[in-house]
Amino acid sequence: MTSIPASIPAEAVRPTATRSIDWWRWGGRVFLVFLLIFTVLPMAWMLLTSIKTQFAALQYPPQWWPAEPTLQNYTRLLDPSGSIGKEFLLYFWNSFYVSLATTILGVAVAVPAAYAFSRFRFPGRTFLFFAVLLRNMFPAVVFLVPLFLLMRWLGLVNTHGSLILTYLTFGLPLSIWLLKGFFDNIPIQLEQAARIDGATRFQAFLLIVMPLSSPGIIATSIFSFIGAWNEYVYAYTFLSKQETMTLPVGIQRFFTEFATDWPGLMAATFMMSVPVVVLFLVLQKYFVRALTEGAVKH
């Protein structure tokens, strides 16, 4: 090997550096700090209030930090022997039951539909697909009257069945859309290979496609669950009996019954948010993917 000697020509000059401070980066950081305060402050105040006594909460100027922090608001909500605790835990269970049933049924209905939309080219496919998607466009309130009449006719008023059936349709369009995206990303050759290897179409779906689309199924499940857990309008209209109520509606009863009990309400609000926030934090990856799938083409 020969190496060619390199030398800097004598006439070369070194201009003054043009790299300067990246103002954009600093601007971004300042902006993020502002956003963080905007986001966290309400949540922090909710938590701080929830560990105050009623007396401490209703002071002006406010106690920025509770003088005598207490967990009594939480123990009261979680104590099954007290009347408030009994009620709260019942609502909590109702919410959980309805959300879980919605999620499971939703996946069972959405998976085959999404698969068909992804793989088959049957007449009316596009029309049906968008008819299903358009459901997202209609506000819940618009459907309240006819659905209320329908539920009464079906004898479902004041039952959880009415909510599960309605929530199914909330989740379905999104679930179908998301799952279709996941199925689209699974190479069709995998199924073809399975069918050549001796599997029926259904076996190919069950043994090859389903395991591969489990991230999509998890993602849609989170969405259905959170959607059902947070739903208010239908629950508010369909359920009038106290023993069937879900949390978002039930919590309002606390508020009216104990009109000025802000610390109690904040504690209940916090408790209500815990399941969805935990679910979100644990399965964040899937949640984010579910949210953006379809809108962004990779």
Partner: peptide
């Protein structure tokens, strides 16, 4: 930043 989007509007 995503937490507000996840919690219920009621809360």
């Amino acid at each position: 930043l995503l937490i507000p989007y996840v919690v219920s509007a009621v809360a």
